[in-house]
Amino acid sequence: MTLDTSTEVTSAPPSGSRGARARSREWAERISRAVPSIGLIVLLALLWAAAALFVPEFANGSNLVNILRQSADLVIAALGVMFVLLIGGIDLSIGSVFGFSSVVLATLVFGGTPVPLAILIVLAVAAVAGAVSGALTHFGRIPAFITTLGMYYILFAFAQMISNGLALKLPPGTMLQGLSRGTVFGIPNVVLVAAGTAVVAWMVLNRTPYGRDVVSVGLNRQASRLSGLPVSRVAVGVFMISAVLAAVSAILLTARVQSGEPALGGLTGTFEVITAAVVGGTSLFGGRGTVLGVVVGAIIIRTIGNCITLLDISSLLYQTVMGVLILIALIVEAVRLRQKGGVE
């Protein structure tokens, strides 16, 4: 500080301003990363404003709560599939994890198993199914598209066999009823469960070594492996997360309809969940996805569904809109990747 005055004097002002610039660069970096999520929130706000103007009954307090209630199951399942998408995989089995979990839960509860135990069993079974998909994909080097489509049909068949293809009504008065209908300070329980899931998912993704591993493996599997990251644990684990969160989602749906439904979900269900994640800015090429984005993506989809119901238009239109949405999201992604390639 005291010696070497000649260089100190000349270099001090630029180095001082560089410190300030480094800090502003850091903020610029953080803000630019949040831009996609902020954009989605703006999109949702515009959607709600437009719906309030053109859809009768939309801007009604109970309808808005209703949308959030309906979004809960989609948010949870989409957060699950986000982890698979983050490593560049895909999980087509979600739709039948819904029906299968629903049937298993109802059968257990009907047979007298205490509800908490039944829920644990359902989650454990889903985890096993996810582990099988993940292990086949990772160790067997089979594309996830194929293993999870296989798992879809296996679970679909199990659900049909267990239930004989029929809905199984839940006995009245179980705690599953309270779960679905209850509220805390006016907020529906299911919304709280979804919010809790989102917070945990955010913590896992952003504040745990495992979340770091997932993103790194998704961006470059080879470099991650050579850095000593537990690639197998990531590659199998994300499918377990996806299946378990799909099962959580199925438990909420089962509680809502108060019966075990083998037809819950289906391929449409799979499609809806993946659409929510992709509309929420999750890349199908791996490495990119945010919890906030996925949550907003799921709410956008349920809002559109809500409007279509209120306007009493054919539900086929809903599927058309889904298809258009996923195409738009993918085009945006493709354009983004191309631009990025151009700059580098």
Binding site: R212, S216, L219, L226, S227
Partner: peptide, 18 residues
């Protein structure tokens, strides 16, 4: 570029990977 670093990941995360 393909094995030593994860290009799309931040410098910070690359350095702290282990």
């Amino acid at each position: 570029k393909s094995q030593g670093v994860v290009l799309a990941m931040s410098v910070q995360r690359n350095l702290t990977t282990r």
